[in-house]
Amino acid sequence: MWQKYLIGVIAAGSMAGALADAPLTVAWREKPPYYYFENGVAKGFMLERAKQVFAAAGVPARFVNEPQKRIWANFSHGLQNYCSISWYRLPEREAVAQYSLPVHADQPHAVLAVPSVVARIKSHPNLKSLLADKSLTLGVIDGVSYGPELDALIAGSENRIMRRTVETSAMFRMVAFGRADFLFVDREDWNYLRLKYPELQMLVLIDFADMPQGLKRHIVCSRDVPAETMERLNRAILARNDTPRR
């Protein structure tokens, strides 16, 4: 009996060791210019930064492209040896994953609008007033976070909401084609997509003084990833001169 028990312990230990030695699967979603495919080649400034961090940390990694909802379903279901880049810190996400130090700090969002409603949007003194305007239609990408503050404002908005599960570029084009009046835009997205899609150049970027500060993005990993591995990633992140420390 004890021999079977001993064999079981050895087998379990071998499996655990093999899992620990295996490269981490690091998932990224399609979000140009952060990470995207161009002619079948994976590109993006955040994808390159993440690869540099894992390499500098000496942590083997296999990078894969997966949809956002699948990524967070994997974390929720306890998929092991799994990480993803780069995400805002939100309570519901912290419940299922562990966070690195920040790898990037966003600029504040802006409002992107069709020309016909620019005067109406600019007549609002703040975001609260804008989101109380029942005559305007706000485009929202379903399943993504605009940050805790904007998420809460959108949830309480009195605008008509056009919510779609689409890529960022598709939502931009929907607004350009009049399906919605405005949306909240990540400036990195806008600076990239307005050059890629000429039909977007008629849209107007509008700043609001009370727009929440840009959030920090982190590498997130499954709970089974060892603390020592997370520390190695954090040391590699801190070694970058252009990375915020908190």
Rank of each mutant, 00 (worst) to 15 (best):
I141V: 04
K128R: 10
D242H: 06
D142I: 00
N191E: 14
A239E: 09
M202G: 13
D151A: 03
K43W: 02
P33L: 05
I219A: 07
V204H: 10
A176R: 05
G156N: 13
A110R: 14
G156F: 00
V64D: 09
Y82D: 08
A239I: 09
L138P: 01
A227M: 07
L136N: 11
C83H: 02
P115R: 12
M1W: 06
V103G: 15
M162A: 14
G139N: 06
G78N: 03
G156K: 05
M202Q: 13
S123F: 10
A239D: 12
G13Y: 05
W28F: 14
V185S: 15
R164C: 01
S116M: 02
P67H: 11
T137I: 11
P115L: 05
D189F: 08
F208E: 10
R194C: 08
G178T: 13
V118S: 11
Y5C: 07
R49C: 02
L131Q: 04
K128P: 00
R232M: 05
A209F: 01
V220L: 13
G58S: 07
G143T: 01
V9W: 04
V175P: 00
V41M: 05
E66W: 14
N191W: 09
H109V: 02
Q98I: 11
G147N: 03
R49W: 03
G178S: 10
I219C: 06
G78A: 03
A170F: 01
R194Y: 06
R163Y: 00
D242A: 07
E92G: 09
L131T: 03
R179G: 04
G58Q: 10
S84V: 11
D207C: 05
I154R: 00
L6F: 14
F208S: 13
L90F: 02
K134G: 08
Y192A: 13
V114P: 01
L205N: 03
L101H: 05
E149V: 13
K134V: 12
D181E: 07
V96R: 09
I71N: 01
G44L: 02
I7F: 14
P32Y: 06
L136M: 09
K134S: 15
W87G: 04
F37T: 04
L205R: 14
Q201A: 12
G8P: 06
K31N: 11
A73H: 09
K31V: 07
V59C: 06
L19W: 05
S157V: 00
N241E: 08
I7P: 01
L233A: 10
T243R: 08
M1S: 08
L131I: 02
P108L: 13
K43T: 05
L238R: 14
Y88P: 03
E94W: 03
Y82A: 10
V111N: 06
F208Y: 14
G214M: 12
N241A: 12
R232L: 13
E149K: 08
V225C: 10
A20D: 02
L200H: 09
Y99A: 09
A209W: 00
D106E: 15
A50L: 04
P212G: 04
A22Y: 00
R179D: 11
G147Y: 00
F63A: 01
Y197N: 08
L79M: 05
I141W: 00
P108Q: 10
R160L: 09
R232Y: 01
M46Q: 14
A16N: 01
